[in-house]
């Protein structure tokens, strides 16, 4: 168990480090062998013909945030459903397990229905 956790931690760390190393290396290659000729126009952010008139660190639609909120509820649900699914095959009292999971999912679905009724899922 512990060895698996260490294994995962090492793999994750090495993956991110390697990603960083790959980018740094290739940027170094670019610095040495490539050209670099930054001009004022090149540094502007891309816009269709016009100059961009303010930066993009602005407010945006709350809809995206609401989607993320509903998602988090479902995401937590997975964490509880996976062990349920793993032991289901070997469990003795399967009816009890189904009813239990049904109540659990039903409460979450009520939330989804509420959000649906409130028009969160409508994008205009």
């Amino acid at each position: 168990m512990t060895s698996q956790v260490i294994q995962i931690a090492i793999f994750t760390a090495v993956g991110f480090i390697l990603g960083g190393v790959l980018l740094t290396l290739s940027l170094a290659i670019q610095k040495i062998f490539g050209i670099s000729n930054p001009t004022k126009v090149k540094k502007e952010s891309y816009e269709c013909g016009m100059k961009a008139f303010h930066d993009t660190f602005i407010q945006y639609d709350v809809k995206y945030y609401l989607f993320a909120l509903i998602f988090i509820i479902f995401d937590v649900e997975f964490v509880f459903l996976v062990p349920w699914a793993v032991i289901f095959d070997i469990a003795a009292n399967k009816t009890f397990l189904i009813i239990e999971a049904f109540i659990f999912v039903f409460i979450l679905v009520l939330g989804l229905i509420y959000a649906w009724g409130k028009g969160v899922l409508e994008f205009d």
């Binding site: 290739s26 940027l27 670019q30 490539g34 670099s36 000729n37 930054p38 540094k43 952010s45 930066d55």
Partner: peptide, 12 residues
């Protein structure tokens, strides 16, 4: 792509 100019837009 490896030798392309690495451009960071202003304000980024």
């Amino acid at each position: 792509l490896l030798f392309k100019e690495d451009n960071i837009p202003g304000g980024a």
